[in-house]
Design a protein around this nucleic acid. Structure first.
Lengths: 347, 347
DNA sequence: TTGAAAGCGATACCAA
DNA sequence: TTGGTATCGCTTTCAA
C-alpha cells in the first residue's frame, strides 16, 4: 500500500542496465530490440512483476485503446450477447471495452458519458438513439466515432445500427391478427424509448385494423420481471375477459404471462396466444414454446465494433455504410400456433 | 478527430485568465477559490466543454478512483444484482467501477487481472476463490485491497465474503431427503468451481444417507441455458425412470427441468420435485413456484464495496472483520411441496 | 487565496 | 539498434 510499490519502466531499465526507452520498445515492438537486451529486459520484467501503467502510456501516446460502451441494463440476456460480440471483435484488436450500465436512466447516462469521456476512449457505443440533448451534445463534440445501436429512429449522431421497433410492434400485431386474433393485448413494463416505440407500433397496427385497444394495454412503471407478466395479465383479464392474445414488450413478461395462464388453467395458445420480444433462450424451452420477435443483438454489437476498428485503422475515414437496419424476425412457435379454429378464442 | 480537439486545463486557465492550478482547485475544492474566480472558471469550463482528463489526473495524483471488478458471467441475473450493489456504494463515494467479464475462463481472468492492474485500481473485487496460481500471485502482490466474493473455501488472499457451496449442495439434498425423496438427481452445466462444490456437497450428502448416485448425475460441458435443463433430465430419465427429485446447479436448469416435466406430463412436485440455485426472479412466478437456494448477492457486493471504502479511507487499516460467511437459505416453494405422501413418488 | 516549479510513468521524435 | 529529451494533462508541494 505504500508509495512506490509497483515497479515502473525506469525500475526495469535500471535492473536490465538499459535505458527506459529500450524497455518500452522491448515490450511493444520486441523485434526492434536485439535479442540479448530483450532477454535481459524480459527477465527484469518478470523479476519485478512489472505491469505497464496504462494511464501513463495512454497519456503519452494519446492512444488509450479504450472503447466506451454504455448499456441500459444487464438484467436480461440481451446485452450480454451484445457485449460479448463487441468484446470478441475489440479485445483481439488490442482494445479494452469499458462498460457502464446506466440502468435505463437518462441522468445516469449523461453522467456515464462524461465519465467515459474522462478516460478519452477512442470511440463510443451507446444503446438507443434517445439520449438527452446534453448527452447528444457531448457525443457530437466528442471528436471520436460514436455508434448508436438497437434503434434506427431519427437522425443518428454518427454511425447507427439497429431496427425499427415501431415496425416490430406492428408486425407482432399483424402476426396475431393473421392467426385470427382480434382482442390483442399489450403488456409493457417500465418503458424505455424502444419499448415505447413497440407500443406505438402496436397501437398503430391495431388502429389500422380498426380494432379498439380499450382495456387491452397493461403497463407498469416498475422495471420488468417475470412475475409482472402475470400481474399485468390479471389486470387485462379483469377488464377484457375474452382477450385472445397478448404481445409483451419483452420475454420476461411473456414468460410471466405463460405462467399466469397455467395458473389459471388457460390453454396457450388455444385460450390465449403469446408473443414476446427478444427471443431469449427460454423461449424454445417453454411449454408451449414461446413465439418471440428475434433481434440481431450479436450482429449489432459486431458491426458497431468492426466499424469502429475500420475508422480507427483508416485514421478517421468513414466507412461506406454508416447506417444499418438489421430488421427483426418473428419466430413463430407454439404459443401462437394455429391449433384449432383460427378465429375467435376463449368463451 | 485531429489533435488538440479537447480542451485542457490550460485552455480553461487561459480563457479565465488564471493559472492552471487555480482551475484545478476550482474544480476539486471550489471553496478554496474566491467566488469571482470560481465564476469565471466555471464559465470557461462550460464554454470550452472541458472534461478533466482522468488519465492525467490519476497519473499526477496517484489516485485513480478506480475499483476493478471481475465477474465470470453476465448471462444470468446473479451478477447484475451484485454489480448493482457494488456501484451503489462506490459511485457515490467517487469511485468508478471497472467491470471485466471473463466468461468463466481462467485464462481470460488472468488477462483481465493484468489489464485491470494496468489501470492502477485502488482495489479489486474478484468472484470466487479459485484463481490460477499466476492470478493469485498477481493479486497478492497487487499492493491493494483484494476482495474475493461468492465463496469461502480455502485461504483468502485478503478480504473474503461468500458462502459455502458444498454445504449449500448438501442442504439441497437434505431438504429433498426430508421430504421423503431418495432418488435425487443432480444436473449441472459447464461447471465453474462453485458449481463443482455444490456437486460435491450433493455427493457427500447422498453418500451420508447411504444413497447411490449412479445414473443420477447429468452434466454438460456447455454453458447452461434453459433448454439444457430439459436435455439433462431426459438423460437421467433414460437411466433412472423413477427418479423422484432433481437438484440443479442453477435456476436456468431448474426452469428447463420444469418445462421438460410439463412436456412429458410429469407432475411437479408429485412425480418430480425440483430445487434450483440462486433464487432468480422467475422462481416465484413459475407454476408451480420453484424451490431454490437463495444467496446474498447484494449483501456480498455491498460488503465488498464498503470494506474497500473503509480501508481506503482509513489509509490502509484493515477492518475488524476480513472474512464473512453470508450463508444461504432454501426457499421452499411449490416444486418441493409435500403434496401427497411424503415418501416414495412416481411408480 | 493564488501561482511557480517539479513530477507522475510512459511515448515520440530525433540523434547517435 | 539504442538513448536523450521534451511532452502528454494534471496534481502536489512550497512560496508569495
Amino acid at each position: 500500500m505504500n508509495k512506490k510499490q509497483r515497479a515502473t519502466l525506469a525500475d526495469v531499465a535500471r535492473r536490465a542496465g538499459v535505458s527506459p526507452v529500450t524497455v518500452s520498445r522491448a515490450i511493444r515492438h520486441p523485434d526492434m530490440v536485439s535479442e540479448e537486451l530483450r532477454e535481459r529486459i524480459d527477465e527484469a520484467v518478470k523479476k519485478l512483476n512489472y505491469i505497464p501503467n496504462h494511464l501513463a502510456s495512454a497519456l503519452a501516446s494519446t492512444r488509450t485503446h479504450i472503447v466506451g460502451v454504455i448499456v441500459p441494463s444487464l438484467t436480461n440476456g440481451v446485452f450480454d450477447d451484445y457485449l460479448g460480440a463487441i468484446q470478441d471483435v475489440l479485445n483481439p484488436a488490442g482494445f479494452q471495452v469499458l462498460v457502464l450500465n446506466v440502468r435505463y436512466s437518462e441522468i445516469e447516462e449523461e453522467k456515464a458519458i462524461q465519465t467515459l469521456m474522462g478516460y478519452h476512449p477512442e470511440a463510443m457505443i451507446v444503446a438507443g438513439v434517445d439520449q438527452t440533448p446534453r448527452s447528444l451534445d457531448l457525443l457530437r463534440h466528442a471528436g471520436m466515432p460514436v455508434v448508436q445501436t438497437m434503434d434506427v429512429s431519427g437522425a443518428p449522431i454518427d454511425l447507427n445500427i439497429g431496427l425499427d421497433h415501431e415496425a416490430a410492434g406492428a408486425a407482432a400485431v399483424r402476426h396475431l391478427y393473421e392467426l385470427g386474433h382480434r382482442k390483442i393485448a399489450h403488456l409493457t413494463a417500465r418503458a424505455d424509448p424502444r419499448a415505447r416505440r413497440r407500443h406505438a407500433g402496436y397501437q398503430r397496427q391495431m388502429a389500422a385494423y380498426g380494432l379498439s385497444t380499450e382495456g387491452l394495454v397493461g403497463a407498469s412503471p416498475r422495471p420488468s420481471d417475470v412475475a409482472m407478466g402475470g400481474e399485468l395479465l390479471d389486470e387485462i383479464l379483469a377488464q377484457v375477459p375474452d382477450v385472445s392474445a397478448v404481445f409483451t414488450c419483452n420475454d420476461d413478461l411473456a414468460l410471466g404471462t405463460l405462467f399466469e395462464c397455467q395458473r389459471r388453467g388457460l390453454r396457450v395458445p388455444d385460450d390465449i396466444a403469446i408473443v414476446g420480444f427478444n427471443d431469449l433462450d427460454f423461449c424454445v424451452a417453454a411449454v408451449p414454446t414461446l413465439t418471440s420477435v428475434s433481434i440481431e443483438r450479436q450482429q449489432m454489437g459486431r458491426w458497431a465494433a468492426e466499424s469502429i476498428l475500420e475508422i480507427i485503422r483508416g485514421s478517421g475515414k468513414r466507412p461506406k455504410q454508416t447506417r444499418v437496419d438489421v430488421g427483426f424476425s418473428i419466430k413463430a412457435r407454439g404459443s401462437t400456433a394455429a391449433t384449432r379454429k383460427p378465429a375467435r378464442k376463449k368463451g
